[in-house]
Amino acid sequence: MTRPLILGLLLLPALAATPALGQTETFRVYNRTPAPATALHAVRSGRPDWGSNLLNRGPLAPGAFFALRPSEAAGCRFDLRMVLESGQEVVRRNADICADRNVAMALAPAAAPPPVAQRAPPGAPAPDGKPAPLPGGVAAGPGTAPGAMPGPRPNPNARASTGTGFVVGPEQVLTNHHVIEGCSRILVRTADGRTMPGQVPAADARRDLALVRVAGSPGPVLAFRANPVRRGESVVTYGFPLAGLLSSGPTLTTGEVSALAGLNDNPTQFQISAPVQQGNSGGPLLDRQGHVIGVIVSKLNAARVAQRTGDIPQNVNFAVKGTEAVDFLRRNNVTPVLRESPSGERPAVDVGEQAHASTVFIRCER
């Protein structure tokens, strides 16, 4: 099985002044794994990011190849990354495509297990009295497939809080700063049930925004809306409120943009009428075309307002504006996807289904 030839792959210029012989000829990247690949990245060696996903026409089947013709200035040395449907990654650094035009991407062979007489069951005490480690030094969760690399498990003894995030770039999740503040460990659970550790490369306490980087593909990227938001527009929220009390799955709510400023006329936020609860923080606020217009951040403290006014406010909640989030991402070397939203509204159920694959549950352990 073959894939269409991609001409003129845009890559950063190589350091060498003279192109290597034959470096502009087509080379092939083979999927030598037993699973389809959903993402493939090929960039000049040493580039700090992976660039765009080349598999924009669908997965690459096992045994199939993807053909590439680099530009003359790209050089001979490439870093390649393939992401499988399971979330596993195959990375090959510094491949010399001038020396070998066929690049095989295969999973590393599993290490040979120790003799049965010396091996204890996972987690059981070993002969020296220490717990037997699992592959990768992490514990297997329920339903881990045989041979699959298990994900990290929550620490039941940790003081923990939860929130929501959504995918804004390869290996990049956006959430609120207060969701990840003070965490000693961050766990991100994707829509397909995978759990992966997260790190925070950038945060903005003033805007209450943070980036969480994960090793693996957390899901498809959600697009931000490019055209302005108007007061009264219908919106959808998607996230994980009150984890452990309500449904363990995501929750969808609907409402409207009530005001184009937040509490005390904060110009970086919207006021919305869509109900939100603790745990919704960091989730996407979407228009009825499924484009992100904000990041859920807080709700009004109704009890305190009632003490001051004698009236209980209903559904007064806030979101960081999408324009603020886009600026934050660009300042931290993440290129957000921007799309115009046409007039008209899609059903909320369709918007929720679109957001589902891109919205993640975040657990902060302290």
Rank of each mutant, 00 (worst) to 15 (best):
R194C: 10
R194N: 14
T195Y: 14
T195A: 13
M196H: 03
M196Q: 04
M196K: 01
P197M: 12
P197E: 15
G198D: 15
G198T: 14
G198V: 11
G198L: 14
Q199L: 10
Q199S: 13
Q199C: 07
V200K: 14
V200C: 09
P201R: 07
P201T: 04
P201G: 07
P201A: 02
P201E: 06
P201V: 00
P201H: 08
A202H: 10
A202R: 07
A202C: 03
A202S: 08
A203M: 05
A203H: 09
A203R: 11
D204Q: 11
D204E: 02
A205N: 13
A205Q: 14
A205G: 11
A205H: 13
R206M: 01
R207S: 01
R207G: 01
R207C: 01
R207L: 04
D208A: 06
D208P: 06
D208G: 05
L209T: 09
L209G: 09
L209E: 04
A210I: 12
A210D: 15
A210E: 15
A210P: 15
L211R: 04
L211G: 04
V212P: 15
V212S: 13
V212A: 13
R213V: 00
R213Q: 08
V214N: 11
V214I: 09
V214P: 06
V214W: 12
A215K: 05
A215C: 01
A215P: 00
A215I: 00
A215S: 06
A215D: 07
A215R: 06
G216N: 08
G216K: 04
G216S: 07
G216W: 08
S217P: 04
S217K: 10
S217G: 10
P218S: 06
P218D: 09
P218W: 10
P218N: 10
G219L: 00
G219T: 00
P220D: 05
P220M: 00
V221C: 04
V221Q: 08
V221P: 06
L222P: 04
L222M: 11
A223W: 15
A223K: 15
A223E: 12
F224A: 07
F224N: 09
F224V: 03
F224K: 11
F224G: 06
R225T: 02
R225P: 01
R225L: 03
R225E: 03
R225M: 03
R225Q: 13
A226Q: 14
N227Q: 08
N227W: 02
N227G: 03
P228C: 01
P228F: 02
P228Q: 05
V229E: 15
V229Q: 14
V229H: 11
R230P: 01
